[in-house]
């Protein structure tokens, strides 16, 4: 399994319309294909619950909302960029410009997808990776950068 299996092409949005966190989460969850979510509301509730435990705004203009949820059938990632930035209660106070929404099933058969998310998380700490994602303008560019991990 590699990251392409988790990042569906239609789940990338280079210009999110929402200007707040709740709207952005809803918008991005709608990007995920039907095979991923069995219960979108449940998934969103679990994502919010995770946000309430501590913001997933990691700083540097990045946020990675995520949840392990019964509303998820198979693991997947959605990527959204917000041109104006969205307030995410990040550690460093910066608004989130690049958002990774991560969906993981509550009960999972193997941990392949977790390994990929682990790599993605590590990569997130790499400045050049973050820089190129911020610069990316098209869906394909984003997919190429993320697939390169």
């Amino acid at each position: 399994m590699d990251i392409e299996a988790l990042l569906h092409k239609e789940a990338v949005d280079t210009a999110l319309e929402s200007t707040d966190k709740e709207g952005a989460l809803k918008e991005m969850a709608a990007l995920l294909p039907g095979s991923v979510l069995s219960d979108k509301q449940q998934f969103l509730r679990d994502v919010h619950a995770r946000e309430n435990e501590g913001s997933t705004g990691i700083g540097f203009g990045f946020a990675i909302p995520h949840a392990k949820s019964n509303g998820v059938k198979e693991a997947a990632i959605a990527v959204g960029k917000s041109p104006s930035g969205i307030e995410w209660k990040s550690m460093d106070g910066q608004p989130a410009e690049v958002i990774f929404l991560i969906a993981v099933p509550q009960e999972n058969a193997g941990d392949d997808h977790l390994k990929i998310l682990q790599q993605l998380s590590k990569k997130m700490m790499d400045e050049s990776f973050r820089h190129s994602l911020k610069q990316a303008e098209t869906k394909q560019q984003i997919i190429d950068i993320v697939s390169g991990i």
Binding site: T56, H66, V104
Partner: peptide, 18 residues
């Protein structure tokens, strides 16, 4: 370690390593 153990755990580790 983090609540879901999906992302922050590994970012924090990478942050410390760097």
């Amino acid at each position: 370690s983090c609540p879901n153990g999906i992302a922050h755990t590994y970012m924090a580790a990478e942050g410390l390593n760097k």
